[in-house]
Simulated scan of single mutants.
Amino acid sequence: MPNLYTVAPNLPTETLVLKSYETFSSVRTLLLNLSNDLTGEHRDVALAIHQLSELGVLLVGQMMDREAPLTSL
């Protein structure tokens, strides 16, 4: 069965990191919005996944800061 999703093999690392950050950020937002509509155990699971995605955002953000720090104006 062919892959439905692929990542171009020659993308620069900066592009991969940026897209990862954007993906984690989107997941984080979607999960937080979803958790507002849930209750009980389902809400707890959504918030736990949100917390993991938040960690992903922080980790990728730290990597971005190390690899391509913003210069002060």
Rank of each mutant, 00 (worst) to 15 (best):
P12F: 00
V7S: 00
D44N: 03
E54V: 04
N10T: 12
N3P: 13
S26W: 04
F24Q: 08
E22R: 15
N33K: 15
V27A: 08
E41T: 11
T23V: 08
N36I: 06
L30W: 06
E22V: 15
I49Q: 09
Q62D: 06
L11T: 06
N36F: 05
S35T: 10
P12W: 02
R43P: 14
L70N: 09
V27T: 01
E14A: 11
V60G: 01
L34T: 14
L4E: 14
P69I: 12
E14R: 14
P2R: 02
L32S: 10
P9H: 08
L32H: 07
T29F: 05
N3H: 13
M1V: 14
L18S: 11
L31W: 00
T29K: 14
D65G: 13
L32D: 07
L18Q: 14
L32A: 07
L70I: 11
P69F: 10
M1P: 13
V17Y: 12
M64A: 11
Y5E: 01
S20F: 04
S26F: 05
I49F: 03
L32Y: 05
E67P: 06
F24W: 09
E22L: 15
V57N: 01
S53D: 01
Q51V: 08
T23Y: 10
V60M: 07
T23C: 05
M1W: 12
N36H: 04
N36G: 08
L38T: 05
P9L: 02
L34F: 09
L47K: 07
R66D: 00
K19T: 12
F24T: 04
V60I: 15
T29D: 03
T6F: 10
E14S: 13
L59P: 00
F24L: 04
G40N: 08
A8C: 02
S25I: 00
D65S: 15
D65T: 15
G40H: 08
T13Q: 11
L4T: 14
N10M: 04
L73Q: 05
L31A: 02
N33R: 15
M63A: 13
L38C: 01
S35L: 04
G56V: 01
G40Y: 11
T13G: 03
L4K: 01
L58R: 15
N10K: 10
T13N: 11
S25W: 08
H42G: 02
S25K: 14
P12C: 04
H50R: 10
M63I: 11
G61R: 13
V45C: 05
L55C: 09
L34M: 06
L55D: 07
R66V: 05
S35F: 04
E41M: 04
L59H: 05
A48Y: 01
Y21V: 05
D65Y: 10
G40K: 00
L73M: 04
V17L: 15
G61E: 00
T39D: 12
V7W: 00
S53K: 10
A68M: 14
E54L: 10
I49W: 03
S72C: 10
T71W: 13
F24Y: 06
N10D: 01
S72A: 14
T13A: 13
M63N: 08
L73I: 06
E67S: 13
